[in-house]
Design a protein around this nucleic acid. Structure first.
Lengths: 242, 242
DNA sequence: GTCAGGCAATGGTCAGGCCAATTCGAGTTT
DNA sequence: AAACTCGAATTGGCCTGACCATTGCCTGAC
């Protein structure tokens, strides 16, 4: 007791609570993030790791379970099984955000508010940067939007198109941060807002919004793309906060 | 292969691979998200769960480790220890984002570009929404910025203040999505930009930037806050892309 | 050539134990 | 009475050593 107090008074270490399982997790994490273990590659078997780290298999397994839970490895069964390094997937963030939303109802509004500027900026940047391939994909979506049946029939199709546009624009910006965030956001949106009933006039409005946004992007008119996206998102926010 | 394909075609189940540890994790997750176990509450001890679920302690521990890794429980040691339900924190998503950015080697340019609008919007929203407590904290930072020594001496202090401002503003917006993203972004920034050499005139400039931003926020002038933040970030982007 | 059966490697789980940290209270000292 | 000491009791951390289930591969019979 006294030692602890005097040590604290001296500003020394706040107790080196080191579970060996945390140590192992940290080491494996490092090896993964540093690329010493490449995505897809198999980690040593549990029994090997047991010897490598000098701990019991139970501890190794706890560490692997931890990595599995955070989406860093995939554990497969059988003779050629084992823990395989996973390419960190943007859906990681989707899961985390979804968990967040599950526990905090208020977050739906927050999500909407964030998207308001985020998607707008995606549209602006995409307009000036989209590669020919991305433009081609946008053109296809534009065509599909035009062809979508009016009324309730085309609602699902238009929703899909809308979703794909929101997926595609961040990719078109070429900004990996935006891509990652968009993936997480849209994952969460899909889960939270799955059941939004179409308003009577929604299909037509949605089609017009999508067409306007994509057209502006294809015209490389960043300012207009941002403006159209802003309109579109404001409508969405209004619907979402009902 | 063929069985798998035909089964998929028939829309059958993708094989019910059920590890008991997954079952336990699912059950505890449910209990947590449904509020049957309240945040802060202690889960039954490992030995109790062993009997409840009819599995060994090793399996229970793996399940708890999984919950711990996903940020749902906090495991404490000692006589009154155990697994305690955690309030899902925006930092959950922050961690996920940080992991993602680390593994994806998000370019510094991408990060900077995203922050340009993100931080700007944080400043704008914080200006109109910051609670009295947040304003008080901002006032403290403002004072510290004023008092910081000039020249190289004050550089570290000013950097800290700058960092804290960028942490505090998203909190002040009250938007959990922004808080979460800020968490991940700043984590990543800290790792990537650890070594930026101070330019000869940087300390004074940095101080002025911080003072301008915070002052505008405290004056509830959203437009000015956004503008000042934009200036500040553009300077940062320029430094970062050298 | 094909097919069945066994072998080996791997993860999944179990049982039972000991250790370390932490709390709390009974007993002791001041 | 207050403060202090020390040891039970509880809890997580970790270990040993086993057995089972799944999966891939090889071998031998047909």
């Amino acid at each position: 007791m006294q030692d602890k107090r005097s040590a604290a008074a001296a500003g020394l270490l706040p107790v080196n609570r080191m579970r060996s399982v945390d140590d192992i997790v940290a080491q494996l994490r490092d090896a993964l993030s540093a690329g010493r273990i490449q995505p897809g590659e198999r980690l040593p078997s549990e029994r090997e790791l047991t010897e490598t780290f000098g701990v019991s298999r139970a501890t190794v397994r706890e560490a692997l379970r931890s990595l599995e839970a955070t989406g860093l490895v995939d554990i497969r069964l059988g003779a050629t099984g084992g823990a395989f390094a996973l390419t960190p997937d943007p859906s990681l963030m989707g899961e985390a955000l979804a968990t967040l939303l599950m526990f905090r109802r208020a977050s739906e509004r927050d999500l909407a508010e964030f998207r308001l500027t985020f998607e707008q900026e995606n549209a602006r940047l995409a307009a000036t940067r989209a590669s020919p391939e991305h433009r081609a994909q946008l053109a296809v979506l534009l065509r599909r939007a035009h062809d979508a049946a009016p009324g309730r029939k085309g609602w699902a199709e238009l929703e899909n198109i809308d979703f794909e546009v929101h997926q595609l624009l961040p990719r078109a910006t070429g900004n990996s941060v935006r891509i990652a965030i968009a993936h997480g956001i849209h994952d969460a949106v899909r889960r939270s807002f799955d059941r939004i009933e179409p308003q009577p006039d929604s299909p037509a409005t949605l089609r017009r919004d999508v067409v306007n946004v994509v057209t502006a992007v294809l015209a490389t008119d960043g300012a207009d793309a941002a403006k159209q996206m802003d309109r579109h998102m404001r409508r969405w926010v209004r619907r979402a906060s009902d």
